[in-house]
Design a protein around this nucleic acid. Structure first.
Length: 803
DNA sequence: GCGGATCAC
DNA sequence: TATGGTGATCCGC
């Protein structure tokens, strides 16, 4: 009785694997083939091992349950019996047999569609679609509120239809065979048997087929007839057969539709005894909601059929949770929903993808962003914003992990979702460091949607304003863990790279691993920086984001400064600025305060400009300032920002209208407008081109409007800060090139140099992970990954073939 | 609220 | 044979 743990299962697995090895060895294949086979076997076993593991977990649950069962006394059981039976009486009293529920189930839907869609049949005019299409076209006539369940199933409540139908004349219940299809297109001559009782019409009067009446069928008024009619019409419409169940509630209807599959129907009469008879020997596994695990657990208790479920009701009430045993009781009594509840509001939305192993943080972050992008798109289609972001990961051993984070303000855009997801991902990457995180699936989910009521209170935020067409990237403060901004970015906005971007990218090539870093970490860094570098040189990025790490990176020497001491940081930066590296190539604009010059070089907004900028943006966005509430999150992160980049004495900050965005990222991040790309030029001009210039305009525009490039020292004949910035960037790039070439071969083109340096690393990467060979372009969407998975599948197929 | 797990389709 | 993607729910913590 107690022998639940199943060791023979494990033996079986080992046997299987051993056999594979034997096979491989005996065929004397060359090394490559053997390796492939081993790979396959390992892959298979990983999955299988995980299945075994899960199975063992279930066994443990069963073990626990059985131990609990052993402790149950007769007394307890009797008491439970009394209580449960009291409930049974109540349930019986509330039993409702007055509804007629129909469950329609398309037979072998996918296979059938595929068959039907094969080239040979392709020319046929067939309306294929989901149940919701048959909604519209057929099912609504029987129940305007019918409930589609996926593509191939639907519930209908035909109670009302039956009443009306009683008075219908025959003509209203007459339906015609679709002869058009068979005659006009010629191909579809052999009409399949539609249902059991149509032989009379089909066989006895073939000569009258073309006459309309003979070419039709009249259905009766009973529930069975209605369902036959529905199935008839579905088949005429789609050429696909359907099975159906008729019963007083949804659960019974569903189980019933399964009984005469395929192309059949079945009814449970609306009588208590009929219901109980139907259930008597029905395996519990047939019950919707009882899956593999529950089946196994109940089987351990000797419960296989629904009547046994009823017999053991007292015991079950002691072993399972209230919700569970109550459900069991409903099942065993044949009780279920007698009306079709309208689909409630969606509770979550997610997207996930399976792929061949991805083990570099770089790829993982960019995949994560891609998922966020896809998800954001879908969310916005439905106008949904959620407060909880969940990251799902499945490692190469098929172990699934979910990590969730709930933020104070709801998220819906790619940036907002990614801001949360990337942290979750970063934590997971860090948690296995120095080993790489080896995953085969990643998913992102958003849940905790705002109710309609809550949506009303959503103030029009800078986010929505910007999202309406003018996307600006923002600076972020985030914890000093793996920094996704170092290698992922919003690839759609592709602005040009600034000096700092490129400088950082270049620096990363040589950087940053202390000698004691492990091999794994080293690998990771190399990859991230190499790939990053490639992208950096091509597009403008949001890399400045990463300047806001708690681990502060000096924008001049690009060394990480872990100190939070502002004085120290600024001193360091000043030293750098006055040092050799920069002073040779550029003139530092001097203000009355050297600190100010430091700030001017940061690709960030000066703290005192934040509100100014923000106000202007808000004004443009028509933001209701009064609706803006002070938010501790906002102000605290803003304070951090202030402390890091400015030595201004801390002042009490007015609650600014950063509110929405800042709340979105909650305490972890602070979002501020960053350097604005050309794409946003007009916005830029409107919002920041003022006498109090933001440092997002790289260098200050002087009052006299004469712009002098601090690099080449020449006057620039432009009033546009954007144009000016372009020029400065170009100048700075020259400096970078010089540095990269170690001041040799200055004329050497940037790209050439670049590709030389990156090439080796990329090759190294490909060596490590061949599947990563083709890089996604920024615009590539899910398909690319799907393709990846597919190609690996086809590889497997080929391997199988060679086996 | 989080994370693992189960289930359906 | 190996094992997808999306959404919901439950349970224990």
């Amino acid at each position: 009785m107690k022998k639940v743990g199943n060791s023979s299962c494990n033996d079986g697995a080992l046997l299987r694997m051993g056999l594979n090895d034997n096979k491989a060895g005996m065929q004397g294949l060359d090394k490559e083939k053997i390796n492939k086979i081993i790979m396959e076997a390992t892959k298979g076993s990983r999955f299988y091992e995980n299945e075994l593991k899960k199975d063992q977990q279930v066994n443990q649950r069963i073990e626990k349950m059985m131990q609990l069962k052993e402790k149950i006394t007769t007394q307890q059981l009797l008491k439970a019996q009394l209580q449960v039976d009291k409930l049974v009486i109540e349930l019986e009293q509330s039993r409702n047999l007055s509804s007629t529920i129909v469950h329609i189930d398309m037979d072998a839907f996918y296979a059938a569609v595929e068959m039907r869609d094969n080239p040979e049949l392709k020319e046929k005019p067939i309306a294929v679609g989901s149940m919701s299409m048959l909604v519209r076209e057929i099912l609504t006539e029987y129940d305007p509120n019918f409930m589609p369940m996926g593509l191939d199933e639907a519930y209908l409540n035909i109670t009302e239809h039956l009443e009306k139908r009683l008075n219908w004349p025959e003509d209203k219940r007459r339906f015609f065979f679709n002869t058009e299809r068979t005659t006009e297109k010629g191909g579809y001559s052999s009409s399949p048997v539609l249902f059991e009782d149509n032989t009379l019409l089909m066989d006895d009067h073939p000569e009258q087929r073309d006459q309309s009446v003979a070419n039709s069928v009249v259905f009766g008024t009973s529930a069975e007839e209605v369902v036959k009619e529905i199935r008839f019409r579905i088949e005429q419409k789609t050429q696909l057969t359907a099975s159906a169940g008729i019963a007083p509630n949804t659960m019974l209807a569903k189980m019933c539709s399964d009984r005469n599959k395929p192309n059949g129907q079945c009814r449970v009469a609306p009588e208590r005894q009929a219901v109980l008879d139907f259930l008597k020997d029905l395996p519990i596994r047939k019950v919707p909601g009882i899956g593999k695990v529950t089946e196994k657990m109940l089987k351990a208790l000797g419960i296989v059929t629904c009547s046994e479920l009823y017999q053991q009701r007292a015991l079950l009430s002691l072993l399972f949770s209230e919700a569970s045993w109550r459900n069991f009781l409903d099942i065993s009594l044949g009780l279920g929903s007698t009306h079709l509840e309208k689909d409630g509001e969606r509770k979550s939305m997610s997207t996930e993808r399976t792929f061949s192993e991805i083990n570099t943080a770089e790829d993982q972050y960019s995949l994560c962003r891609e998922l966020c992008r896809d998800l954001a798109q879908e969310l916005q289609k439905e106008g949904l914003k959620g407060k909880t972001v969940t990251l799902k990961l499945k490692n190469v051993n098929f172990e699934v992990k979910t990590r969730a984070s709930t933020v104070l303000s709801s998220v819906s855009t790619e940036e907002e979702i990614f801001a949360v997801a990337k942290d979750l991902l970063g934590t997971e990457i860090d948690s296995v460091a120095p080993h790489p995180l080896r995953i085969r699936l990643m998913g992102v989910r958003v849940s905790g949607f705002l109710s309609e009521e809550e949506k009303k209170y959503q103030q029009k935020s800078i986010t929505s304003f910007l999202k309406s067409g003018k996307e600006i990237s923002f600076l972020r403060l985030h914890a000093g863990k793996s920094n996704p901004e170092c290698f992922t970015k919003n690839s759609e906005a592709s602005p040009r790279g600034s000096f700092f971007d490129k400088k950082r990218a270049a620096r990363q090539l040589n950087s940053e691993n202390p000698p004691n870093e492990t091999v794994g970490k080293q690998l990771f860094h190399d990859k991230k920086s190499s790939a990053h570098f490639v992208e950096e040189t091509k597009k403008v990025t949001d890399l400045q984001n990463s300047n806001m790490c708690k681990i502060f990176t000096c924008p001049v020497c690009f060394e990480e400064q872990s100190s939070n001491n502002l004085e120290e940081l600024n001193r360091h930066i000043d030293e750098c600025l006055s040092g050799s590296l920069v002073k040779d190539t550029m003139e530092i604009p001097k203000n009355d305060n050297s600190r100010e010059s430091t700030l001017n070089f940061l690709p960030q907004i000066k703290s005192e400009n934040v509100d100014e900028c923000q106000n202007k943006v808000d004004q443009l966005a028509g933001t209701d300032q009064s609706a803006c509430t002070s938010d501790s999150c906002t102000s605290s992160s803003t304070e951090k920002f202030t402390q890091i980049i400015s030595d201004k004495p801390h002042r009490e900050r007015q609650p600014s209208n950063l509110s929405d965005i800042a709340r979105n990222v909650c305490m972890k991040q602070c979002l501020l407008p960053k350097r604005i790309s050309e794409d946003n030029e007009d916005l830029f001009e409107k919002t920041v081109h003022t006498e109090e210039t933001s440092s997002s305009c790289f260098f200050e525009a002087k009052g006299d409007s004469v712009l002098v490039c601090p690099v080449c020292n020449s006057e620039q004949k432009t009033n546009s800060l954007v144009s000016f910035n372009k020029h400065v960037d170009v100048c700075l790039n020259k400096g970078l090139i010089q540095e990269l070439t170690e001041k040799k071969d200055f004329p050497k083109t940037y790209n050439t140099e670049n590709s030389n340096r990156v090439g080796g690393l990329i090759r190294g990467q490909q060596c490590t992970n061949p599947s990563q060979g083709t890089k996604r372009s920024g615009l590539t969407t899910s398909q690319s990954v799907s393709k990846k998975a597919k190609s690996s599948n086809s590889k497997n197929t080929i391997d199988m073939f060679f086996k």
